[in-house]
Design a protein around this nucleic acid. Sequence first.
DNA 1: ACAAAAGTGTTTAGTTTACACCCATGA
DNA 2: TCATGGGTGTAAACTAAACACTTTTGT
Lengths: 247, 247
Amino acid sequence: MKEPLTSFNPHLSVDCVVFGFDGNSLKVLLVEKVADNHAKHIPRKHKLPGDLIIRMEDLYGAAERVLLELTGLSNIFLKQFSVFGTPDRISDPDDIRWLEDTSGVTISRVVTTAYYSLIKIGKSKVKNVVKNNASWHDVANLPDLAFDHEEIIKEGIKSLQMAIRHEPICFELLPRKFTLRETQILYEAILGHELDNRNFRKKLLKAAYIEPLDEKQNGVAHKPARFYKFNKKKYELNRTDILNYNF
Amino acid sequence: MKEPLTSFNPHLSVDCVVFGFDGNSLKVLLVEKVADNHAKHIPRKHKLPGDLIIRMEDLYGAAERVLLELTGLSNIFLKQFSVFGTPDRISDPDDIRWLEDTSGVTISRVVTTAYYSLIKIGKSKVKNVVKNNASWHDVANLPDLAFDHEEIIKEGIKSLQMAIRHEPICFELLPRKFTLRETQILYEAILGHELDNRNFRKKLLKAAYIEPLDEKQNGVAHKPARFYKFNKKKYELNRTDILNYNF
DNA sequence: ACAAAAGTGTTTAGTTTACACCCATGA
DNA sequence: TCATGGGTGTAAACTAAACACTTTTGT
């Protein structure tokens, strides 16, 4: 146990919907809720990475802590998108028992602040992820989830869909060098529908902050695609107030 | 005091940014934080309507309760837009003392879920509003505010600005019968900039759910404006997925 | 008759959509 | 030489922006 028991606030938690992109589909990072001591027969459910708040800890700071412990990464994209606080959101007795066992505090009612996080899937240090029983799951095919975490993920996806229409945040999910095709597949994965290839490229390339590199794929059995990078400074200098990526 | 003291959760609250429109500018409803017993010299600050959560109360329900007590209205538009939870957001000793006096619980740290609410200003029953020391304030000219309530209002306005670009929620702020000019002034008040009259009207009238009535203003010293109403059913039936009110 | 706000149309520029073929590479 | 995905342009439809005068009423 990382902290003295009394330091957790039993009413407040954060949960993180950690999105990743493997080149094909949108993924979310889930941890396995390991079976507790009381019963051997509890089905192993998955849950979002999250934790109760430490006394006097900032909410954003708590989300950063959860992600650092899980992935070994700091300075990653994190955005608060909702609060979930219906009194019965933690009602399954197994879930309550598990929470009380792992936190050491008595649980009456927990209001959780939900963040979504965008990470470059290649960067998450595998050893930490494995150590924490965490694994990537396709958002289109989620396992059985504890608490109200399925609802939280669904809301997180909606927020992300909204956000990528207005802000160039998709680059947080792509490698530093990416191809336009990868970007398109990412948009399609997030929005859940196909896009016209030519029109998509035209629209992206209008933005000066998406810069072509002199580098191409190699080793691919087709015409190699050019790499691009996102110039964040350029974006922030000339940002137009509201960006229109309504595909 | 409305409830036994022990029934409040000292860590959780809701605050409501109640927007109204008087035909000219966007207003927000504030209550006066009356001076407590301890000192006569505390400057009278304003605050948002809000309250600690009653044990096992739903967050949304708590916001509804606050608004019912304040305005006498139920079934009004309410939308969660953010959570404010930095540990030092309630740090002014006067604010802490006031909170402890009025709630009867010891305050260590309060995470508040913020809602914005849209109300037809004519409807709020004046007697309740007055009874609660509440009054409307122009958002462009806010008084000194307790806690982090100024920041909450600013964020609420940003959320509202976003929302009116995508959803026809401005009608929640207008009387049931409204003129197009009133709608335009409302958009201008929320967005903070002027709009082209002809283009605005054209865009609004493309929507079939904004229906002209056979009724006009009267008693005005100029050409009387036609009234319109918002047909919510029609909107919900044919809603296009994402509406584009980017003025 | 005047003041005050309502209401109206057109032109131009820009954006979105739909659509099909050639190119570069590895096997 | 074939399979694979990368990369390109244009025309038509639509949307946005800019802009000024006439109408209706009360005083």
